[in-house]
Amino acid sequence: MKHTISLMSLKSLISLLLPVLFFSCTEEIIIHTDNSKPVVVIYGELTDEFTHQSVKITWSSPYFDNQPNAGISGAAVKIVSSDDKTYEFFENDTVPGLYESKAKWAIKADITYSLKVEIDSEGDVKTYEASTTILSPIAIDSIAIAPIDIMGYKHYAVNLFGNEPEGEDFYLCKYLVRDSLITTKISQYLMLNDVMFDGQYVDGFTLSFFDSIENWEKVPERMRNQSVYLSPGDKVELQMSRVSKGFFDFVIQCQSEMHGSNPFFGGPPANITTNISNGGVGYFSGYCISRAEAVTP
């Protein structure tokens, strides 16, 4: 799948252009940096799906450390909503640092959820807080999948139909292909804003392209896993959510910073913004999901 093109994609563009022009080469390099002091990383995405909501709490680690980041156990985690409900979270038995609500529940639009995390680090108790206000879901009329030939390669375009509300809005899009979520990582999230169609009826706006299975043989083997391939009859489900500008920026920044900066596009590296208080990093957000599906023709 190739989706949301933005400044991020310009980086890709140049990264692809240069090898074409100059046969550039890459190789691993050892970089020596100081190691910053560990900070608390908190990440939670609440949704309106009736489920065990979760929050992950870990320590940051030196950038090139060989070990996965350590989870923070023993934290006190709870969420209080603006409609006066309290949700207690408990640490997962097998995954350190993963805190889940005891009962299943779903967030609601227009409600503010406030996260409070208390961590006792060698007797020093620190409290980290964040809150998110849930925006109402977007009404999607439908999506349609249309084959399109791009330079001799067959692709499928996913086109969106629906009314975009007036005002500045930001969207997160995820996909299920053949009932399997293919956008499980932040780097795979498709983020949109409405600058180009604010308050308009979105009439077939192309969100994403998928490769046709017909391209499988044409793509070099080492690159095959970079795409998602559709065959006729495959079901594609779009999950589209209206998200806050803060979360939108967070995801865009994560995607931008993940691989370092590019000398052509994007500015100097900078820390990813956060809504976690007291020196914590990460993000706490929530959103309602709107769904639409289509079958590959």
């Binding site: 940096t33 190691n35 990383v41 030196p62 950038y63 990582k185 993940m258 900078a270």
Partner: peptide, 27 residues
């Protein structure tokens, strides 16, 4: 240049944490 001095792990991916702008140099 600005090199990352730390990282956070979110949903199985790592994202950089920087301690200051242009603290380091390219080779």
């Amino acid at each position: 240049t600005t090199y990352p001095t730390g990282r956070m792990e979110i949903l199985g991916e790592y994202f950089p944490i920087y301690s200051g702008r242009n603290e380091y140099r390219m080779p």
